[in-house]
Design a protein around this nucleic acid. Structure first.
Length: 202
DNA sequence: AGGGTGATTAGG
DNA sequence: CTAATCACCCTC
């Protein structure tokens, strides 16, 4: 009992990520994504995500079934899935749902909260607006690489809840960006009027 | 609007 | 082995 209480304090509870990805997507806005990668603490509030809905979503990497790369997507909610895009950009996803479902949220933009100087060094710019906007850019800022794929939230990467809940009226919903299939699904979620959301803003 | 960049995947 | 395809980003 005591051991369980201590474990609960040390390990944040990510079981809420085992639900439906389309329910979780708006809820995760406002949460802080914190990284200990590279021996420094960097973090930002999540302001934009896209939902990828398992093996039935033509735009999802899981659509083709289980492959070596996408294996983490088939693990339980709270697993981290990072893939390399166009040979350059590491893009980070948080897996949702039960094991076998392969749904995930692509983190598309953050509002910087911790380690701004380090992020500026890694991004080779001091422009705050360019640090953590776009999935490849935020990974570079937080030191996220494909080496972190198939890890679990609560190790190198972790989530911290928002201080105030996000009103549903302040959430914009629209089609996903940069895909060639299922382009009409309204599965992109962002905070309205937030300057760190990637273009096109909604 | 166009191109760099290289892993990943299916197909021969 | 080859070739196509990319859940991107920067510069022009």
């Amino acid at each position: 009992m005591v051991a369980y209480a201590i474990m609960s304090m040390l390990e944040p509870d990510y079981r809420w990520l085992e639900g439906d990805v389309l329910q979780i997507a708006p809820r995760i806005l406002g949460w802080e994504l914190e990284s200990q990668a590279g021996g420094a603490t960097t973090a930002g509030r999540i302001v934009e995500v896209e939902a990828y809905h398992g093996t039935n979503d033509p735009a999802s990497h899981a659509y083709a079934g289980r492959t070596p790369r996408t294996m983490p997507m088939f693990d339980i909610g709270g697993t981290v899935y990072v893939y390399l895009s166009y040979g350059i950009h590491a893009c980070m996803n948080i897996v949702t749902g039960p094991a076998g479902e392969a749904s995930a949220l692509l983190i598309r933009a953050l509002e910087p909260t911790q380690g701004v100087n380090i992020m500026a060094q890694r991004r080779h710019t001091t422009a705050l607006a360019k640090l953590t906007t776009g999935p490849g850019n935020l990974s570079q800022a937080l030191g996220i690489t494909v080496a972190l794929s198939d890890t679990r939230l609560g190790t190198v990467l972790s989530l911290r809840p928002p201080t105030t809940p996000t009103p549903s009226l302040s959430i914009a919903i629209g089609p996903r960006i940069g895909i060639s299939r299922a382009t009409d699904y309204p599965w992109r979620f962002s905070l309205k009027h937030n300057p760190f959301v990637s273009p096109p803003r909604m």
